[in-house]
Amino acid sequence: MSAVERVPWPALPTDARGAVERHLTGPYTVREMATYNSGVAVLLEFADGARVFVKGVPEGHDQVAQLDGEERVNGFLPLSCPRLLFRLKAAGWDFLGFSGLAGEWADFGPGSTDLPAVASMLSEVGDCDVTGLRLPSLWESYRQWCDPADEVLFQGSTLLHRDPTASNFVVSEGRAHLVDWAWPSIGPAWVDAFIWAFRLVVDGGQEPHEALRWASRVSGWKSATPAALRVFSQAEARSWAQSVEEAPGDEVVVALATAAEKWASRWA
């Protein structure tokens, strides 16, 4: 998937900003948000305390597929996840607008008081009723890095976020809110917990045994098997290795690929 150039909110075409503003309630201030996946990502804050998060990419960009996925899944998510307020296209841009959140990104470090709330949020997602929701299966996303015989290990009927990083949880008043549903999938119940464990090590500097202890608090974890963890971790490592080939100068991607290879070796 090709990268999208970041554009500050004031640099957008006037007609694009105007189309968004027609969905807003009045004057606002702009906070630019860090993200890899959007050309525009801003939190618009209003005098009454209301917030709207807007993300967008140029029309026709291959990352429009991520906006499609977020739009499709939103109505099936727990109520603690931001609600989709609008989808619009204007002046060559494609936007999503969500209810904004007050809070801070989760702390994944040892002893963090955010971790119980994150585990609870992942369990809540795993319990979502996805009847009627059409999303790619996990196998569709990982088959290129697996043996065909491994398909059975990727089967399941649970809603997956697939990117439970520290910056995708906003914590407020003791509750974690899971955001940025760019890659929703359907698959085994243990997957998000396992990826979270990896991110606890990478983002939070936790020891692997502590990370897995936290993962075990997510309800879907109990269905994990050693064979599934081995195959999935190897597929993740191969996918990150491919990302390095596509973006060899990206230090973040290189570091994640190295960490993923080390994580996979633990399950070999």
Rank of each mutant, 00 (worst) to 15 (best):
A241S: 14
E246N: 09
S112Y: 06
D94R: 03
L200W: 03
A34P: 05
G69E: 04
D62K: 02
L160G: 01
R17W: 08
F53G: 11
A3I: 06
T29E: 14
V152C: 06
L88A: 08
L77R: 13
T165S: 13
V64K: 09
P8D: 08
V125Y: 02
A247M: 08
Q234T: 07
W190F: 13
P136L: 09
G187C: 08
D15H: 12
V252H: 10
A117I: 03
G100K: 02
G92M: 13
T165M: 13
R217S: 07
A257I: 00
T29L: 14
E151D: 11
E124H: 13
V118Y: 14
T14F: 11
F169Q: 00
L159D: 03
T113D: 10
G249N: 06
G111E: 05
V170K: 01
V20A: 09
H177R: 05
V152K: 10
A257M: 11
S141Y: 08
L153A: 14
S112P: 07
W181I: 03
L178W: 09
L115N: 03
Q155D: 14
E124N: 10
G205M: 03
P10C: 01
M1F: 14
D192W: 05
D147K: 15
G103I: 03
F169A: 01
S120R: 13
S223V: 09
S99W: 15
L12K: 01
F53L: 13
R266Y: 12
T165R: 15
D180Y: 04
A19V: 06
W93L: 02
D68V: 07
P82D: 10
E210N: 03
T35V: 09
R238Y: 06
A182C: 12
M33P: 09
F198A: 08
L85D: 03
T131F: 11
N168Q: 02
T225D: 11
L178G: 13
P58Q: 12
Y142T: 00
A215S: 02
V54F: 08
L85Y: 11
P58F: 07
W9T: 00
T131S: 15
G26H: 11
E70Y: 14
K222Q: 14
L96M: 03
W214D: 00
T158D: 07
I186L: 12
F194I: 04
P27A: 13
P78S: 10
G205E: 05
W196T: 04
E21R: 12
R199A: 08
R6A: 07
L88K: 12
T165E: 11
P116A: 00
V7F: 11
A228V: 04
V20R: 04
L212T: 02
M121V: 09
R162I: 12
A211H: 12
A47K: 15
D114L: 04
W196E: 01
F46M: 10
A193N: 02
E246V: 08
S223W: 04
A197T: 02
E70Q: 15
E261D: 13
G109P: 11
R6S: 07
R266W: 14
P58H: 02
C128L: 10
E207W: 09
R17G: 11
F98E: 02
I195T: 11
G39P: 01
N168F: 09
S216F: 15
D68G: 06
R51L: 07
P148W: 12
Q63R: 15
G69V: 04
G39V: 06
W214T: 00
